[in-house]
Amino acid sequence: MSCWQTIQDYGLRSLGIGERLLPREDFTLCEQVTLIGSGLLWNIYFGTLALLAGFFLATALAIGKGARNRAIRVASTWFIFIFRGSPLFIQFFFAYFAFLSLKSVSPIFDPFTSAWAGALIVLFFNTAAYSGEIFYGALRSIPKGDVDAADAYGFSGWARFRRIIWPTMLRLAWPAYTNEAIFLFHATTLVFFSGFPAWQQRGDALYYANYFADKTFNPFVPYPILAGYFILLTLVILGLFGLINSRLNRHLPKEARRRLKLRVNIIR
């Protein structure tokens, strides 16, 4: 079987398209690369959606943690504390358990025992909590002069937040937020590994790497392939975030841009 044929058969196997049976013997390098790459689609799906949705919740949490209203402040603080303070491993366990119990309450919760929805929720909350903390730290270190200047120009309320505070917050938080994004994509490998069951052998990159390691009894081929894929993915993320970063800082002179990068070197 040619490699091109393998790609046609297994390229979208993780989504349930293509050959139903996984390769069972005479595993070729091509099969391993194709299937693990196919599984990577799930990692990208989880990572991208959780990151996008998490971004907005994170902003809300960051403002909430600094809010004057005590109830909002306490709620945001605890949300961040619980999701940052416990391993994802345990969060997946509880989420799966909770969704199972909720399922008997109402059929609305049916999809949440599947990874595509249930794990996405957990990852969404998780990244929102981590990013929320980063944004909160950035909010606190916004130079007082910036805010004073905004006041002097007559900005107030939403406009002040939208045009002055929020962009500055992003600018300060961006390096740390980039790290968080990388970590989130790494964390997606835990979905099928510990939290949620894999249906019809549709899993993520680690699931297939694990499958091959299990069948060939040789961990030294599939896991390095997986590692290679993730290094590429990380490079893509770094590239995209770098582009956004230069857009965020486009008003600054070149020298200042480079210096800003290293200010907040917080990693998760």
Binding site: I182, L190, F193, L206, F230, T234
Partner: peptide, 15 residues
Amino acid sequence: IAIVRGVPDIAFFMF
């Protein structure tokens, strides 16, 4: 730094 940071820790631990 680049390689180890780019790979999920779990993938390292497996082998």
